[in-house]
């Protein structure tokens, strides 16, 4: 099985460890991974700000980069959601692009969905003896329709202690350019989110999207809190036993 990595621009430039963890996990399961260099960004920052044409031009980098791929997997429910939810409309009526978009939609998966629904893996044999809270990303859950795949993966980790916190499903206030444009509201939102996370006494906050985690982490550091944030792939990878060569 061949997977092309769609790192997303955020992970590529700010959180390369997340992509690395993902690659290593996929590799363990005998998946052949490649990284098409033509990719940049799904176009969401522009699209969600109303700049549709700009978004389309950027999105084309993905259509081209992944056109030959068998599967495309991304460490982001949001960017995958963008492809699934909006690309059909974005490229409707544009010859060639329309078909490319449809092909991409059909083969693109968010990491946890790919693991559980395509590879059929829920137990990676990882161990992570920490108190872990899980933040479902809004776009992952609502735009893309991630159900409990991330939690299935978490629950199978040995010695993990899952902790819950109130309003886990509420948005953290990121929302891409929203956090810049409406930074006051966004700041109030992340403040509330962080408060709940800290009160849960979690040591690590896990999610499937680095956008949310970047936002929450920024607030946690600002408040000088101890809670760490990690992408699901990082937790799984760190918890894996060393490989016997």
């Amino acid at each position: 099985m061949k997977v092309s990595l769609f790192t997303t621009c955020l992970v590529d430039s700010l959180f390369p460890n997340v992509a690395e963890a993902m690659v290593k996990i996929l590799d363990r399961y005998g998946v052949e991974v490649d990284f098409p260099h033509g990719q940049t960004c799904c176009g969401q920052p522009a699209f969600n700000s109303g700049y549709v044409d700009e978004a389309r031009e950027v999105a084309k980098t993905l259509l081209d980069a992944f056109d030959q791929s068998e599967y495309v997997v991304a460490p982001s429910g949001s960017c995958t959601g963008m492809i699934h939810h909006y690309y059909a409309d974005l490229f409707a009526g544009l010859p060639d692009w329309e078909d490319k978009a449809e092909r991409l939609i059909n083969k693109t998966y968010e990491f946890s969905q790919f693991m559980v629904n395509v590879l059929g893996v829920t137990d990676l044999g990882a161990r992570f003896p920490h108190r872990v809270a899980y933040h479902p990303s809004c776009h992952g859950a609502r735009l893309l329709g991630i159900k409990n795949e991330p939690e299935q993966l978490l629950d199978h980790i040995q010695d993990i202690q899952r902790v819950n916190f109130p309003h886990a499903h509420d948005c953290c206030g990121f929302g891409g350019t929203f956090a810049i444009k409406m930074s006051d509201i966004s700041g109030a939102m992340v403040e509330e989110k962080t408060k709940h996370v800290v009160e849960s006494e979690a040591e690590v906050l896990v999610s499937t999207d680095m956008g949310c985690l970047m936002n929450i982490d920024g607030r946690l550091r600002y408040e000088n809190q101890k809670v760490q944030v990690k992408h699901l792939a990082e937790v799984l990878y760190e918890g894996l036993p060393a490989e016997k060569e």
């Binding site: 430039s13 700010l14 959180f15 390369p16 956090a179 810049i180 444009k181 930074s183 006051d184 966004s186 700041g187 109030a188 992340v190 403040e191 970047m214 936002n215 982490d217 920024g218 607030r219 550091r221 600002y222």
Partner: peptide, 12 residues
Amino acid sequence: GWTESRYAPTLK
């Protein structure tokens, strides 16, 4: 605006 209420990450 962002950094008024939180830190921002850096490019690696």
